Amino acid sequence: MNDALPREIHAVLIPVGSVRLLLPNAIVAEIAPLSGLEKVERAPAWLLGRMPWRDDTIPLVSFSLLTDANAQEDVRTARVAVLKTLADDDEMPHIGLLAHGLPRLITITPDLLVRTDGGERLARGTSAHVLVRSDQAIIPDLHWIEARIAQALPA
């Protein structure tokens, strides 16, 4: 069995606020229109609410508000990046991240991805700052984000 890392990874650059998130294409279920948003009572500002998606209701998160207390969000022209969660959780199989603009599909090879954070302390919700070709991007810490959402949702 070959345990070597893949030579290419299909990924998506998703504009979120003033940054781009770099995510594996395999976890992006869909880019959906924002509609039917219902507020969650006593939720933090970054948990924008729940929205219907297919036969489910998913939590919608503002990455900008979650990771930067001074950020603001404009939901009027936003879309939703629907992501498969990393935890095998029947209660929350998908989450939505507020996206601005259209995502871009890219193929990444090890020589095209350069870490740019230099080992500095990263903002919460962030795994790495990277350069992909000429694009600056953030690799989000999805485990941390999913845990925060689970804590914020009513039982």
Results as ranks from 00 to 15, higher is better:
residue 79 R to D: 07
residue 11 A to T: 01
residue 121 R to C: 14
residue 16 V to M: 03
residue 136 Q to V: 06
residue 62 S to M: 10
residue 33 P to W: 13
residue 54 R to M: 10
residue 25 N to Q: 14
residue 122 L to C: 03
residue 127 S to Y: 02
residue 103 P to N: 10
residue 6 P to S: 01
residue 33 P to Q: 15
residue 139 I to M: 12
residue 153 L to G: 01
residue 59 P to G: 15
residue 45 A to I: 00
residue 88 D to L: 13
residue 26 A to M: 08
residue 140 P to M: 11
residue 126 T to N: 12
residue 1 M to Q: 12
residue 116 T to W: 06
residue 133 R to P: 00
residue 6 P to R: 05
residue 74 D to Y: 02
residue 73 E to W: 07
residue 119 G to A: 11
residue 6 P to E: 05
residue 26 A to L: 12
residue 55 D to H: 14
residue 77 T to L: 13
residue 18 S to C: 02
residue 21 L to V: 03
residue 129 H to D: 03
residue 106 I to S: 08
residue 69 A to P: 00
residue 118 G to H: 15
residue 15 P to W: 02
residue 129 H to R: 14
residue 124 R to Y: 10
residue 141 D to C: 06
residue 24 P to M: 09
residue 128 A to S: 12
residue 128 A to Q: 10
residue 107 T to E: 05
residue 52 P to G: 12
residue 144 W to Q: 13
residue 155 A to E: 11
residue 97 L to K: 09
residue 59 P to T: 11
residue 26 A to V: 11
residue 120 E to C: 05
residue 16 V to F: 01
residue 58 I to R: 03
residue 11 A to E: 04
residue 109 T to R: 14
residue 85 T to I: 11
residue 151 Q to G: 08
residue 125 G to E: 10
residue 22 L to I: 07
residue 79 R to L: 14
residue 98 L to N: 07
residue 71 A to P: 03
residue 45 A to R: 14
residue 86 L to R: 15
residue 93 P to L: 15
residue 21 L to F: 06
residue 137 A to H: 02
residue 47 L to Q: 05
residue 155 A to V: 10
residue 43 A to E: 00
residue 152 A to E: 06
residue 59 P to V: 11
residue 90 D to C: 12
residue 56 D to M: 14
residue 105 L to T: 01
residue 19 V to G: 03
residue 25 N to P: 00
residue 36 G to T: 05
residue 1 M to N: 13
residue 42 R to L: 13
residue 50 R to M: 11
residue 71 A to K: 08
residue 103 P to S: 15
residue 70 N to D: 15
residue 59 P to E: 08
residue 132 V to N: 07
residue 49 G to M: 08
residue 83 L to N: 09
